[in-house]
């Protein structure tokens, strides 16, 4: 009845060390980039860079430390649906705030 999980690697320690290194490097990188005012180039650039790095870090933790890479389809589906629902909540609410201001005035007359 359960989906068979993909086989765990015999020795996951090398993956763990790899992810650990990646996390440290990425933390350094995000601190380094944050020192520079990229908002002069494009206002949201700072936050985009920071969030991209954070997403990469989170993905690495989820996939390797939390074994999702080797987990059942069901587990993977739960992870994806969590992200999906979070995006629904953020996207719809933000869409409200970004499109306020009513109709173009020409239509109002």
């Amino acid at each position: 009845m359960a989906e068979h999980s993909h086989a765990h690697p015999d020795n996951p320690l090398k993956y763990y060390i790899g992810v650990f290194t990646l996390l440290l490097v990425m933390t350094g990188l995000t601190v380094f980039v944050a020192k520079y005012d990229l908002e002069h180039i494009w206002p949201p650039l700072n936050i985009i860079v920071a969030m991209t790095i954070a997403v990469i870090k989170a993905t690495a933790v989820v996939m390797i430390f939390m074994h999702v890479r080797w987990s059942s389809r069901l587990t993977q589906l739960i992870v994806v649906s969590g992200i999906f629902w979070l995006i629904i909540m953020l996207a719809f609410t933000v869409s409200d705030y970004y499109t306020r201001g009513g109709w173009p005035t020409t239509l109002g007359q």
């Binding site: 933390t27 995000t30 601190v31 005012d37 990229l38 920071a50 790095i53 989170a58 933790v61």
Partner: peptide, 22 residues
């Protein structure tokens, strides 16, 4: 435990680094 770590991974840049260049 890993989940709590992931939350911090997002909190750190959003809270601490947002004004680092400012």
């Amino acid at each position: 435990w890993h989940f709590v770590d992931i939350v911090w991974i997002f909190l750190f840049p959003l809270l601490y680094l947002t004004g680092y260049h400012f």
